[in-house]
Simulated scan of single mutants.
Amino acid sequence: LPRRGADTPSLAAKRGKIARFYLAHASRANNWDLVDLSAPYIIGRWLLYPDADGKLPDRGILDTLASHSDLWHQRIGIVATLALIRQGQTADTLRIATRLLDHRHDLIHKATGWMLREVGKKDPGCLLEYLESHFRDMPRTALRYAIERLPEPQRLYWLKRQ
Rank of each mutant, 00 (worst) to 15 (best):
G60P: 04
I61G: 08
I61K: 07
L62M: 11
D63K: 01
D63P: 00
T64G: 04
L65N: 06
L65G: 03
L65F: 02
S67L: 09
S67V: 00
S69E: 09
W72I: 08
W72S: 12
H73V: 05
H73Q: 15
H73C: 11
R75N: 02
R75A: 05
I76A: 08
I76K: 02
G77S: 01
G77K: 00
I78G: 08
V79Y: 14
A80F: 08
A80G: 09
T81C: 07
L82S: 03
L82K: 06
L84I: 03
L84P: 03
L84E: 05
L84H: 02
I85A: 02
I85G: 03
R86E: 05
Q89F: 04
Q89V: 04
Q89C: 06
Q89A: 03
T90C: 00
D92E: 10
D92S: 06
L94W: 05
L94D: 09
I96K: 07
I96E: 03
A97M: 07
A97Y: 06
R99C: 09
L100N: 10
L101S: 06
L101M: 14
H103D: 08
R104D: 13
H105T: 11
D106T: 09
L107R: 12
I108Y: 00
T112N: 13
T112S: 13
G113H: 08
G113A: 13
W114A: 12
W114C: 12
M115D: 03
M115L: 11
L116Q: 04
R117N: 10
R117W: 06
R117V: 04
E118Q: 13
V119G: 00
V119Q: 02
K121A: 15
K121Q: 14
K121Y: 07
K121G: 14
K122P: 01
D123T: 11
G125S: 04
G125I: 01
G125Y: 01
C126Y: 00
L127K: 11
L128N: 09
E129L: 12
E129W: 08
Y130N: 15
L131E: 04
L131C: 09
E132N: 15
E132D: 15
S133N: 15
F135N: 08
R136V: 03
R136D: 12
M138C: 07
A142Y: 05
A142D: 10
R144A: 11
R144K: 15
Y145H: 15
Y145T: 11
P151N: 13
P151C: 11
